[in-house]
Amino acid sequence: MVKFVVAFLISSGLGVVFLKKNPLLMLLGLELCLNGVILAIAARYSQSNFEDDALIIAGILFLFCIAVIETVILATLQLKLKHNSL
Protein backbone atom coordinates (compact mmCIF):
# COMPACT_ATOMS: atom_id res chain seq x y z
CA MET A 1 0.00 0.00 0.00
CA VAL A 2 2.82 2.44 0.86
CA LYS A 3 4.43 1.70 -2.49
CA PHE A 4 1.17 2.47 -4.31
CA VAL A 5 0.66 5.75 -2.42
CA VAL A 6 4.28 6.85 -3.03
CA ALA A 7 3.97 6.10 -6.77
CA PHE A 8 0.61 7.94 -6.87
CA LEU A 9 2.02 11.02 -5.10
CA ILE A 10 5.09 11.23 -7.36
CA SER A 11 3.11 10.75 -10.57
CA SER A 12 0.34 13.19 -9.64
CA GLY A 13 3.00 15.74 -8.63
CA LEU A 14 4.69 15.39 -12.00
CA GLY A 15 1.28 15.59 -13.70
CA VAL A 16 0.62 18.91 -11.92
CA VAL A 17 4.06 20.22 -12.95
CA PHE A 18 3.41 19.40 -16.61
CA LEU A 19 -0.26 20.41 -16.76
CA LYS A 20 -0.37 23.74 -14.95
CA LYS A 21 0.74 27.00 -16.49
CA ASN A 22 1.10 29.01 -13.29
CA PRO A 23 4.52 28.65 -11.59
CA LEU A 24 2.92 28.66 -8.13
CA LEU A 25 0.76 25.68 -9.08
CA MET A 26 3.86 23.96 -10.46
CA LEU A 27 5.44 24.47 -7.05
CA LEU A 28 2.45 22.66 -5.51
CA GLY A 29 3.23 19.73 -7.82
CA LEU A 30 6.82 19.68 -6.67
CA GLU A 31 5.57 19.63 -3.07
CA LEU A 32 3.44 16.58 -3.87
CA CYS A 33 6.52 14.81 -5.27
CA LEU A 34 8.45 15.77 -2.15
CA ASN A 35 5.66 14.36 0.04
CA GLY A 36 6.01 11.05 -1.79
CA VAL A 37 9.77 11.05 -1.29
CA ILE A 38 9.37 11.81 2.43
CA LEU A 39 6.92 8.93 2.80
CA ALA A 40 9.30 6.57 0.99
CA ILE A 41 12.29 7.67 3.11
CA ALA A 42 10.26 7.28 6.32
CA ALA A 43 9.18 3.77 5.32
CA ARG A 44 12.82 2.83 4.66
CA TYR A 45 13.91 4.40 7.97
CA SER A 46 11.40 2.36 9.92
CA GLN A 47 12.91 -0.85 8.50
CA SER A 48 16.51 0.04 9.34
CA ASN A 49 18.42 0.18 12.62
CA PHE A 50 19.57 3.78 12.59
CA GLU A 51 20.47 5.46 15.88
CA ASP A 52 17.74 7.80 17.13
CA ASP A 53 20.07 10.82 17.44
CA ALA A 54 21.36 10.50 13.91
CA LEU A 55 17.78 10.31 12.68
CA ILE A 56 16.78 13.43 14.57
CA ILE A 57 19.78 15.44 13.33
CA ALA A 58 19.08 14.28 9.77
CA GLY A 59 15.42 15.26 10.24
CA ILE A 60 16.32 18.77 11.48
CA LEU A 61 18.73 19.34 8.59
CA PHE A 62 16.22 18.00 6.09
CA LEU A 63 13.33 20.16 7.32
CA PHE A 64 15.52 23.24 7.56
CA CYS A 65 16.85 22.75 4.03
CA ILE A 66 13.28 22.37 2.73
CA ALA A 67 12.24 25.54 4.58
CA VAL A 68 15.11 27.60 3.18
CA ILE A 69 14.78 26.35 -0.39
CA GLU A 70 11.00 26.81 -0.48
CA THR A 71 11.26 30.31 0.97
CA VAL A 72 13.82 31.36 -1.62
CA ILE A 73 11.67 29.93 -4.45
CA LEU A 74 8.52 31.62 -3.11
CA ALA A 75 10.19 34.99 -2.61
CA THR A 76 11.63 34.90 -6.13
CA LEU A 77 8.29 33.87 -7.63
CA GLN A 78 6.47 36.56 -5.72
CA LEU A 79 8.86 39.28 -6.89
CA LYS A 80 8.72 38.08 -10.50
CA LEU A 81 4.92 37.74 -10.54
CA LYS A 82 4.53 41.19 -9.00
CA HIS A 83 6.57 42.73 -11.75
CA ASN A 84 4.87 40.53 -14.37
CA SER A 85 8.20 39.26 -15.62
CA LEU A 86 7.08 35.63 -15.70
Binding site: V2, K3, F8, S11, G15, A40, A43
Partner: peptide
Protein backbone atom coordinates in the same frame (compact mmCIF):
# COMPACT_ATOMS: atom_id res chain seq x y z
CA UNK B 1 -5.73 16.66 -20.79
CA UNK B 2 -4.88 13.48 -22.72
CA UNK B 3 -1.15 14.30 -22.60
CA UNK B 4 -1.50 14.97 -18.87
CA UNK B 5 -3.09 11.55 -18.29
CA UNK B 6 -0.37 9.95 -20.42
CA UNK B 7 2.34 11.58 -18.27
CA UNK B 8 0.52 10.57 -15.08
CA UNK B 9 0.04 6.97 -16.25
CA UNK B 10 3.58 6.37 -17.44
CA UNK B 11 5.16 7.97 -14.37
CA UNK B 12 2.91 5.94 -12.10
CA UNK B 13 3.74 2.70 -13.90
CA UNK B 14 7.47 3.29 -13.95
CA UNK B 15 7.73 4.54 -10.35
CA UNK B 16 5.57 1.63 -9.10
CA UNK B 17 7.80 -0.87 -10.91
CA UNK B 18 11.05 0.86 -9.90
CA UNK B 19 10.31 1.28 -6.18
CA UNK B 20 11.52 -1.41 -3.79
CA UNK B 21 9.09 -3.07 -1.37
CA UNK B 22 8.17 -0.30 1.04
CA UNK B 23 6.38 -1.13 4.24
CA UNK B 24 6.36 0.31 7.72
CA UNK B 25 7.54 -1.86 10.57
Amino acid sequence: IFVGFLIFGTTFLFSYLALPDLDFV
